[in-house]
Amino acid sequence: MMSYLKLTNFELSRFFKMYLVLIGITLVMQTLSVVWTANNYLGEINEQLSSGSTVEEAINGWGLFSFDFITRGFWFSAPILLCIASLLIYVFFIWYRDWLGKNTFAYRLFMLPTARLNVFLAKATAIFLMVLGLISIQLVFLTIENELMKMIVPNTFREDLTINEIINGFDYLRVLYPVSFIQFFINYGIGFMAVIVVFTGILFERSFRWKGIILGVLFSGIALIVFFLPILLHETILNHFFYPTELFILMLISGLIVIAGSIWMSNYLLNKKIRV
């Protein structure tokens, strides 16, 4: 347990600078996006007012400013996409960096007097915590940026939105921040499962190299089929036999089977097949 925590902390530390950079980029780009979008809007409004329009006419022309104007902009989403892309890449890099270069850290990791599975779990936990961390910090940023927007745009021209309204107004934010905790659990549970399966695929590759890529893809395919098996059966030969709750429980079970199977397979590969 202690080794697992130490390794998790260690894995976090290895990406921490990059992680802070990602957070920094997000904050800077989104803040600039708030300032820029709001000023643009106010610029248009002022132009119309100075050409003799009344405030009402200006509002009718340009609409009330809301945070949606910002979230729809490229510079708001770009850092989020950057963070997502970085972490997706890091899902692979967190393993391959231990093999790359002169300093084969994999030697050290696999010679630690602790179950090798701890290395696996620590990496998975680190990824997971970093994802949830970004999600949480973005939520804090959203609150701050919303307040910042209120400071820039005067009351008259503004339609205030709550955080939930901002999130609901934008599709992918709704996936990242579901309203229901269970939905949140499902979304991120599936994400976690995917990370574990990809990790297993990577370990296949690390164990058998070229042949391992095929095995890894095959394994991922099987994992996918096992996970969706209840729905596949439900839609085909079982002819919509299950009630939604039953299907949910079956998917939960199949998800857990995939996670457990992947961890078991990874444990096996790490102990019996891995090549440094």
Binding site: G101, N103, Y107, M111, P113, A115
Partner: peptide, 19 residues
């Protein structure tokens, strides 16, 4: 096994620590 690594160690030809 995992406990063996407290009894036996390996010094590879390249350093095993991060740069």
């Amino acid at each position: 096994n995992k406990d063996s690594y407290e009894k036996i160690t390996f010094i590879p030809d390249a350093i095993t620590m991060l740069p």
